[in-house]
């Protein structure tokens, strides 16, 4: 009897309800794969632990200049879960503090490389066939013509070794990937009707690039970013392994592995636990990234 009332309720959902519905849908897509949730849990725990490092690390002082030869070279025990290193510093505490540098690297590199890469990609794609297009894309080709880690190593090596320069080196080799990604999308989007009609009504270049084309590229960009965090951290760990990252006494994951190799096999915990820490942080970001990719993809996506 009140069928009419019900129908009006269905036709006009409130914005809040729509948002909730969208979130529910995305969460459904994301959480269908249990590995994505595992990734989310790992990443969130690492972030929380890293932020609260001075409070959660069992020996916060051990992350800096600290020497305690009485307790040096101890294997894993109740007092030191992951043992102590050759200076008597708690390995677990140092790993927790090293997560900070790794996360900072992942965030900073993408925060700079993505906007730069996207900007050049949009520009080259929209002015396809122009001198600007050739210029930008050939430079991109040059950067993509060397193995990425090699270029990062070379740049970091000629600069002073520290975390900032390692981030600069990785950023320099990372932006071209986004330029190439966005270029491909922009060249096809610029022929879409919504772009040509914006051009017809006299919209400015800025408006067309950033308000018409860019919003339609966002989903693949975010997907790639989510998948890239793990890779950036991996490259960062590789740089710090050869001494081109954070300098001692500040701990870094790669640097800890490298220090540990000099005390193998007796102090095996100095190598094994930082190695596992690297694997876990990358694993977490990769699984989370896959979940975000599933969420962003339209329709069914096979997990591969």
């Amino acid at each position: 009897m009140d069928a009419k009332i019900q129908r009006t309720e269905i036709i006009v959902p409130s914005p809040a309800a729509r948002l909730k519905e969208g979130f529910r849908k995305n969460w459904y897509k994301f959480s269908r794969n249990k590995l994505s949730i595992a990734g989310l849990v790992i990443v969130l725990s690492i972030i929380v632990v890293a932020i609260l490092a001075p409070y959660v690390a069992p020996y916060p002082k051990h992350a800096g200049k600290f020497v305690d030869y009485v307790n040096a070279n101890q294997g894993p025990s109740a007092a030191h879960f992951f043992g102590t290193d050759n200076f008597g510093r708690d390995v677990l505490s140092r790993i927790i503090f090293a997560f900070r540098g790794a996360l900072l690297m992942g965030i900073m590199v993408l925060a700079i490389a993505v906007p730069v890469g996207v900007f050049f990609g949009l520009l080259a794609g929209y002015y396809q066939g122009s001198f600007l297009d050739t210029f930008i894309m050939r430079i991109t080709d040059i950067f993509l013509s060397v193995p990425p880690l090699l270029l990062a190593l070379a740049i970091a090596a000629v600069l002073e070794p520290n975390l900032t320069n390692a981030m600069i080196a990785v950023t320099v080799m990372w932006w071209p990937w986004y330029t190439r990604l966005v270029y491909g999308m922009a060249t096809s989007l610029k022929n879409e009707y919504f772009v040509t009609s914006a051009e017809l009504v006299g919209a400015g270049r800025f408006h067309i690039l950033f308000r018409e084309i860019l919003p339609n590229c966002l989903s693949p960009i975010f997907t790639k970013m989510a998948l890239d965090v793990g890779w950036v951290i991996l490259i960062g760990a590789s740089l710090s392994f050869v001494g081109l990252g954070e300098q001692p006494p500040t701990p870094a994951l790669g640097q800890m592995v490298s220090d540990g190799t000099r005390y193998m096999p007796d102090l095996w915990w100095m190598t094994v636990y930082p190695s596992l820490a690297i694997a876990v942080i990358i694993l977490g970001f990769n699984m989370l990234g896959d979940g975000i990719r599933d969420m962003m993809s339209k329709g069914e996506h096979d997990r591969g």
Binding site: A237, S238, V257, T271, V272, S275, A279, N286
Partner: peptide, 13 residues
């Protein structure tokens, strides 16, 4: 998730 250098070090150990 295992960087080559980590695997290499673990192999070495």
């Amino acid at each position: 998730a295992m960087p080559s250098f980590v695997l290499a070090v673990l192999f070495l150990l």
